[in-house]
Write a protein that binds this DNA or RNA. Structure first.
Length: 332
DNA sequence: GACTTAATAT
DNA sequence: TATATTAAGT
């Protein structure tokens, strides 16, 4: 059924992009990274991007699939949503114990997850629970009635239950994931928080949990064999342009509220899938690959909103000769 | 209800 | 086969 799905995905990649190239044999230090970067560079510049206020799927296609018209986002909407997020996160911050660090933050900066959990040795953090009640879902924040619910199914307009299409973790989406995980620190990076900060409309906690699981396994492998060539299966993760800071447990940096550039996931009935011309909107949104899944394009998160703090953590770069144990770098 | 881990499905 | 999704246990 999906025997050639890889080939299909490649249709949307530059001609020289070989997603399944034999990295196993000899992954030259950055060959893969360079290619991904080239691909990313190939995307339209900011000037070429379609404004957020325009629909992500053409009206014709939307109507063909009975997709209700999305709420058009204006810059005012985005600003309002950002303010909303910020104020909710501030409320969250006020609920948990405030710290001297956080008290210096500019209004847009959010709670320091480490601080609010500092006495917890497990990754479960009461602060997070308090936050989850204070922070609303992205759909609510966006005021977006066309967003899919954060469930794995939705009803179409005739009341049938539709299966949410399988999410494809594109390099862009993964980059956004990594950005968030790195900002949270691997210890504080739990699915719900990641999902909220990623701010991808339609992305579910389950999507994130699954990807996080995979990412943790990748990090574990990375620790296990520090000098080995990365597994070919780590293609996506290894394509992350920077050494994952996630290897370090805590990023003692309060995370910023990312600029809200929501993306929407459209659920298109599978039987409609064949032969559809891909729709692309790199500004954020979905690239429908014409079959049974979507590729999600996400512009990088703009952390500038509140990240006025420089990290207290020293250079997280991990040299190939170092090993990581329990999140601590061990010099050799 | 959220999280992690393991198993299963595609 | 890779990886997204679901299930089970905490």
């Amino acid at each position: 059924m999906d025997e050639d799905s890889g080939e299909r995905e490649l249709e949307h990649l530059p001609p020289d992009y070989d997603g399944d190239s034999g990295v196993a044999g000899g992954r030259k230090m950055h060959g893969e990274d360079v290619r991904v970067l080239e691909w990313v560079e190939g995307l339209p510049s900011g000037d070429d991007l379609v404004p957020l206020s325009q629909p992500l799927v053409s009206p014709e296609l939307a109507s063909a699939f009975s997709i209700p018209p999305p709420d058009l986002k204006t810059m005012l909407d985005i600003h309002r949503a950002t303010q909303h997020t910020a104020s909710n996160l501030r409320r969250h911050q006020n609920l948990s114990k405030s710290s001297s660090i956080v008290s210096h933050l500019k209004p847009l900066a959010a709670a320091d997850p480490k601080d609010s959990c500092s006495s917890q040795k497990s990754t479960r953090c009461p602060g997070n629970d308090a936050g989850s009640s204070a922070v609303e879902t992205m759909a609510e924040i966006d005021g977006d009635s066309t967003s899919l619910p954060a469930e794995n199914s939705a009803e179409d307009n005739s009341g049938r239950m539709l299966k949410r299409p399988r999410l494809v973790w594109t390099p862009q989406l993964h980059k956004r994931f990594i950005d968030v995980v790195d900002h949270l620190g691997i210890k504080n990076a739990v699915p719900k928080t990641i999902m909220q900060l990623m701010n991808v409309d339609g992305l579910t906690r389950e999507n994130v949990a699954s990807h996080l699981q995979k990412y943790r396994l990748y990090l574990k492998r990375l620790q296990g064999l520090s000098n080995e060539v990365p597994s070919p299966s780590d293609h996506l993760f290894a394509s992350t342009p920077v050494p994952p800071q996630s290897l370090h447990e805590q990023q003692v940096m309060p995370y910023a509220v990312p600029t809200l550039i929501p993306m929407q996931v459209y659920s298109i009935p599978h039987h409609h899938a064949h032969g559809v011309v891909p729709v692309s909107n790199p500004q954020g949104g979905q690239l429908y690959n014409g079959f049974d899944s979507f590729q999600t394009y996400a512009p990088p998160i703009d952390w500038s909103g509140g990240s006025k703090f420089t990290s207290i953590v020293s250079n997280p770069y991990v040299s190939p000769n170092d090993t990581i144990r329990n999140g601590e770098r061990q010099k050799q």
